[in-house]
């Protein structure tokens, strides 16, 4: 542990990795709370995969991958919405169709892109190679996402909890949906280097789901989720550094460990307490 702290103080790349991971943990935790409450976990998975062709095209054209990824993330969100609204195909199915198509295109394009960045590092992330520009981009995206959520917190809360009530208030549910899709795309792009495309969805939903088991208030859920995200990022990075594990995988497994603990021992919802209570009740009846 002290070696890790010493190394952080010594190596700049490690400082950047830690800082970026913590920001990613926080913004994923905050946005993820809304994502899981709106039943859009699969949408998170879809958008994260579908940014791949955008990343590839950006390399080809020679621009920052941010722009290409955001474009394709939004295309995916609109495409899925369009198919769901204009056919009898259900939402989860249209999500599957659209994102796998984009992902397939991405795999082909990455091969043609002739870039030093290989598919593996995009798919699985490599936080130890974070550059200054990446770090600032993550920080900027994080600030924008948090600001939007803070400013529109009331509206997000109502439209997530009770869309019909929100509509009767005159709130534009559709615009709110696409606003969240934009934020989701931004967060995905910001998380690419830390956990990679494949595992972004875990950062989005696992800390949020853990927090969901621990509280009955949205504001507290978001706070816990953000803290768990940051904590998982830090611990995961430490494990990754010490045992030489891939950073994304290590971070995700830490979030999973937190979830398992909450799943078993959450004061209200933990299955351990639940089954103890049930057993107690049954013996009392005998």
């Amino acid at each position: 542990m002290s070696a890790f702290i010493h190394d952080i103080q010594t190596y700049e790349f490690l400082q950047k990795a830690l800082f970026t991971s913590i920001i990613v943990g926080i913004i994923c935790g905050v946005l993820g709370s809304f994502i899981i409450l709106r039943g859009m976990s699969l949408m998170g998975d879809a958008i994260s995969h579908a940014v791949l062709p955008g990343v590839a095209l950006s390399y080809m054209v020679g621009i920052n991958y941010f722009y290409g990824a955001v474009t394709f993330g939004l295309l995916t969100a609109f495409g899925i919405g369009f198919i769901t609204q204009n056919s009898r195909v259900k939402n989860d199915t249209s999500i599957g169709i659209v994102f796998s198509a984009f992902f397939a295109v991405g795999i082909i394009l990455i091969g043609k892109a002739n870039t030093s960045t290989d598919l593996t590092s995009i798919l699985f992330g490599n936080v130890l190679s974070v550059r200054d520009s990446d770090m600032w981009m993550t920080l900027g995206v994080g600030a924008v996402v948090l600001l939007v959520i803070i400013l529109f917190y009331k509206e997000l809360l109502v439209s997530t909890f009770d869309p019909t009530l929100a509509a009767s208030f005159g709130l534009p549910n559709k615009i709110i949906h696409y606003l969240l899709m934009i934020l989701l795309t931004l967060v995905t792009v910001a998380s690419l280097q830390t956990v990679g495309i494949i595992l972004v969805v875990a950062m989005l939903i696992t800390p949020a789901a853990t927090a969901y088991l621990l509280t009955n208030r949205l504001s507290i859920m978001i706070t816990i989720s953000a803290i768990l995200g940051a904590l998982s990022a830090t611990i995961g990075l430490y494990i990754s550094f010490v045992y030489n594990w891939p950073s994304g995988a290590a971070i995700v497994l830490v979030t999973t460990a937190f979830f398992i603990v909450a799943f078993l021992f959450s004061p209200r919802n933990g299955i351990v307490w639940r089954s103890l209570k049930t057993r107690k009740h049954k013996t009392a009846l005998q």
Partner: peptide
């Protein structure tokens, strides 16, 4: 609205 349209597990008091 009708009660049936609401997510009763939503974290709200």
């Amino acid at each position: 609205p009708q009660r049936a349209t609401i997510d009763w597990d939503f974290p709200i008091t």
